[in-house]
């Protein structure tokens, strides 16, 4: 709690900066509107204003600053506009409505969770195989590590379209993308975790005449848990990005990614920003859920703080 005050200060500073940034970003449009409404604006006329930078224009017209925070389609919406839009599209809309962010969020979340589940389980299984088979380790591990350095997200549009052409639509293609994005981080983290017992620990197991299976269940598996959770957190964030990007190519009508895309098609900036914040909140909740599971698990294992 020692850092509560600094954090609040930083957040407040960001919000203040955001409001100030709205002024130059939206001033041109605000000046035009004000002039139409008969409010004097310096300089007069569209043409000289278009030549002018946003900051000098804002400096000369302090009386229309307030107008920059209430526009319909601003270049940069003010924080309260985004907050109101978020509130209206989550709480006040029915969840079955096409304009409800809860609805779109659920479409994205379900694909994320299904894909993440598949990817995480497959990743753990492969990691167990890698630790037990030297051939598998030497064959697969370099590729798993290399896959972390390349933007494999790029094949997402292809998966969507190819599966679409064979008649598979909706949740499954997005889940596949989510699955392979979370798969590799989990493999790499889990292998690291299963290998984390020191030679001394392993020797101790051997002095107790532990079988390979016992060593695995009683030493390697518990030792891997912290590593597993660390990679699960990375994996679920990657899964969410995968599901969102998977919603872009077919111009999908549902999901948070579709909200981002349709917002950018129609210049609905407030919609883009609220969708962006919805994804951020979703990501934060998912990572926090994994972190809570991690704390509970480690506590039950007796190593938690």
């Amino acid at each position: 709690m020692r850092s509560l005050l600094p954090v609040l200060t930083v957040v407040a500073a960001i919000l203040a900066f955001w409001y100030v940034a709205c002024i130059p970003m939206n001033i041109h449009f605000a000046a035009m509107q004000a002039e139409r409404a008969g409010v004097p604006v310096t300089p007069e006329g569209m043409a000289p204003r278009r030549e002018m930078g946003a900051i000098p224009l804002a400096a000369r017209n302090p009386h229309i600053w307030a107008e920059t925070w209430v526009q319909d389609k601003p270049r940069l919406p003010a924080p309260h506009q985004v907050a109101i839009e978020l509130w209206q599209t989550t709480v006040e809309k029915k969840v079955t409505s096409k304009r409800s962010l809860v609805f779109h969020g659920w479409v994205t979340l379900s694909a994320t969770l299904v894909g993440f589940g598949i990817g995480a389980v497959a990743g753990v299984l492969l990691a167990v195989g890698i630790v037990h088979s030297r051939a598998m380790d030497m064959s697969v591990m370099p590729w798993a590590i290399a896959s972390q350095t390349i933007p494999i997200l790029a094949i997402a549009p292809m998966i969507i379209v190819v599966l679409n052409s064979v008649g598979v639509q909706g949740l499954v293609p997005k889940a596949i993308i989510s699955a392979y994005l979370s798969f590799f981080p989990v493999v790499v983290g889990m292998v690291k975790g299963l290998r984390s017992p020191t030679p001394m620990d392993l020797d101790l197991m051997r002095t107790w005449n532990a079988s390979r299976d016992q060593t695995f269940r009683k030493l390697r598996l518990p030792a891997s848990v912290p590593y597993l959770f660390a990679s699960l957190k990375i994996g679920i964030a990657a899964s969410l990005v995968g599901a969102i990007v998977g919603e872009l190519p077919t111009g999908a009508a549902r999901g948070l990614g579709a909200r981002l895309l349709s917002g950018s098609y129609y210049g609905q900036t407030v919609q883009i920003w609220s969708a962006l914040f919805a994804t951020a909140i979703l990501a934060a909740v998912l990572v926090a859920a994994i972190a809570a599971m991690e704390r509970a698990t480690l506590k039950r294992m007796g190593v938690g703080r």
């Binding site: 930083v10 960001i14 964030a237 969102i244 981002l260 951020a280 990501a283």
Partner: peptide, 19 residues
């Protein structure tokens, strides 16, 4: 600044910024 910005920074680093 460190105590204020670091929690915010680690939080933002986990978000889907590509949005």
């Amino acid at each position: 600044l460190r105590r204020g910005l670091m929690p915010v920074g680690s939080f933002v680093a986990a978000l889907p910024i590509v949005g």
